[in-house]
Amino acid sequence: MTYKLILNGKTLKGETTTEAVDAATAEKVFKQYANDNGSDGEWTYDDATKTFTVTE
C-alpha cells in the first residue's frame, strides 16, 4: 500500500510517499525520514487516507 507523509515543519515542509506492508512499517520509514531532515513534532495518522502528518 502507498502511505503519504505531510510535513508541516518550521523549516521543512512538503509531502512524500512510501510503499509499505502496513501503517506501522510506513511510520518507521517516515519517522526516520523526518529525523534525518531535522523535523520533530506532533504526529497524527488518518487511516482512511493512509496519511501521516507531522506538525512542528
Rank of each mutant, 00 (worst) to 15 (best):
Met1Glu: 13
Met1Tyr: 14
Met1Pro: 08
Met1His: 14
Met1Ala: 13
Met1Gln: 14
Met1Ile: 14
Met1Arg: 11
Thr2Tyr: 07
Thr2Glu: 09
Thr2His: 07
Thr2Leu: 13
Thr2Gly: 04
Thr2Lys: 09
Tyr3Thr: 02
Tyr3Phe: 12
Tyr3Val: 02
Tyr3Lys: 01
Tyr3Gly: 02
Lys4Thr: 14
Lys4Gly: 03
Lys4Met: 06
Lys4Val: 09
Lys4Asn: 05
Leu5Lys: 00
Leu5Cys: 08
Leu5Thr: 01
Leu5Ala: 01
Leu5Ser: 01
Leu5Gln: 01
Leu5Ile: 03
Leu5Arg: 00
Ile6Lys: 05
Ile6Asn: 03
Ile6Ala: 03
Ile6Trp: 03
Ile6Gly: 01
Ile6Asp: 03
Leu7His: 04
Leu7Arg: 02
Leu7Asp: 02
Leu7Pro: 00
Leu7Asn: 02
Asn8Val: 14
Asn8Phe: 11
Asn8Ile: 15
Asn8His: 09
Asn8Lys: 12
Gly9Glu: 05
Gly9Ser: 09
Gly9Leu: 15
Lys10Ser: 12
Lys10Ile: 14
Lys10Arg: 11
Lys10Phe: 12
Lys10Gly: 11
Lys10Thr: 13
Thr11Pro: 06
Leu12Val: 13
Leu12Lys: 10
Leu12Gln: 11
Leu12Asp: 08
Leu12Gly: 12
Lys13Ala: 08
Lys13Val: 09
Lys13Trp: 12
Gly14Asp: 09
Gly14Val: 15
Gly14Lys: 14
Gly14Arg: 14
Glu15Tyr: 13
Glu15Ile: 10
Glu15Phe: 14
Thr16Pro: 02
Thr16Gln: 09
Thr16Asn: 04
Thr16Gly: 04
Thr17Ser: 11
Thr17Tyr: 13
Thr18Ser: 04
Thr18Asn: 02
Thr18Glu: 03
Thr18Phe: 12
Thr18Gly: 03
Glu19Thr: 14
Glu19Cys: 14
Glu19Lys: 13
Glu19Phe: 15
Ala20Cys: 08
Ala20Trp: 02
Ala20Tyr: 02
Val21Lys: 13
Val21Ser: 12
Val21Phe: 12
Val21His: 11
Val21Cys: 12
Val21Arg: 12
Val21Met: 13
Val21Gln: 11
Asp22Leu: 02
Asp22His: 03
Asp22Asn: 09
Asp22Phe: 02
Ala23Thr: 08
Ala23Phe: 13
Ala23Cys: 13
Ala23Gln: 11
Ala23Arg: 12
Ala23Asn: 05
Ala24Val: 09
Ala24Lys: 11
Ala24Leu: 10
Ala24Pro: 08
Ala24Ser: 09
Ala24Phe: 08
Ala24Arg: 07
Thr25Trp: 06
Thr25Gln: 13
Thr25Glu: 13
Thr25Asp: 07
Ala26Glu: 00
Ala26Cys: 02
Ala26Lys: 01
Ala26Gly: 01
Ala26Pro: 00
Ala26Thr: 00
Ala26Leu: 01
Ala26Met: 01
Glu27Gln: 10
Glu27Arg: 07
Glu27Thr: 03
Glu27Leu: 15
Glu27Met: 14
Glu27Phe: 15
Lys28Ala: 13
Lys28Phe: 09
Lys28Gln: 12
Lys28Arg: 12
Lys28Asp: 05
Lys28Cys: 09
Lys28Gly: 06
Val29Tyr: 15
Val29Thr: 08
Val29Glu: 06
Val29Asn: 05
Phe30Gln: 00
Phe30Val: 00
Phe30Ile: 00
Phe30Ala: 00
Phe30Trp: 01
Lys31His: 07
Lys31Trp: 06
Lys31Ala: 05
Gln32Glu: 10
Gln32Ser: 07
Gln32Gly: 06
Gln32Thr: 07
Tyr33Ala: 02
Tyr33His: 04
Tyr33Phe: 11
Tyr33Ser: 02
Ala34Ser: 04
Ala34Arg: 03
Ala34Ile: 12
Ala34Pro: 01
Ala34Leu: 14
Ala34Lys: 03
Asn35His: 14
Asn35Met: 15
Asn35Ser: 14
Asp36Thr: 08
Asp36Asn: 09
Asp36Val: 08
Asp36Ser: 10
Asp36Trp: 09
Asn37Thr: 10
Asn37His: 14
Gly38Ile: 13
Gly38Thr: 05
Gly38Asp: 07
Gly38Trp: 10
Ser39Asn: 11
Ser39Asp: 05
Ser39Ala: 15
Ser39Arg: 09
Ser39Met: 15
Asp40Trp: 15
Asp40Gly: 10
Asp40Lys: 13
Asp40Ser: 13
Gly41His: 06
Gly41Asp: 04
Gly41Trp: 15
Gly41Cys: 07
Glu42Gly: 04
Glu42Met: 10
Glu42Tyr: 12
Glu42Lys: 09
Glu42Leu: 13
Trp43Ile: 04
Trp43Leu: 04
Trp43Tyr: 01
Trp43Glu: 00
Trp43Gln: 00
Trp43Cys: 03
Trp43Asp: 01
Thr44Ile: 08
Thr44Gly: 05
Thr44Ser: 12
Thr44Gln: 08
Tyr45Met: 00
Tyr45Pro: 00
Tyr45Gln: 00
Tyr45Asp: 00
Asp46His: 05
Asp46Phe: 03
Asp46Asn: 08
Asp46Thr: 03
Asp46Lys: 02
Asp46Ala: 04
Asp47Lys: 06
Asp47Thr: 07
Asp47Ala: 13
Asp47Gln: 09
Ala48Tyr: 09
Ala48Asp: 10
Ala48Ile: 10
Ala48Val: 11
Ala48Gln: 10
Thr49Gly: 03
Thr49Asn: 07
Thr49Tyr: 04
Thr49Cys: 04
Lys50Phe: 07
Lys50Trp: 04
Lys50Leu: 10
Lys50Glu: 02
Lys50Ala: 05
Thr51Lys: 02
Thr51Phe: 01
Phe52Leu: 01
Phe52Arg: 00
Phe52Pro: 00
Phe52Gln: 00
Thr53Met: 09
Thr53Tyr: 11
Thr53Asn: 04
Val54Gly: 01
Val54His: 03
Val54Ala: 02
Val54Gln: 03
Val54Arg: 03
Val54Lys: 02
Val54Glu: 02
Val54Thr: 02
Thr55Ser: 08
Thr55Tyr: 09
Thr55Lys: 06
Thr55Pro: 01
Thr55Cys: 06
Thr55Phe: 08
Thr55Ile: 08
Glu56Ala: 10
Glu56Val: 11
Glu56Asp: 11
Glu56His: 08
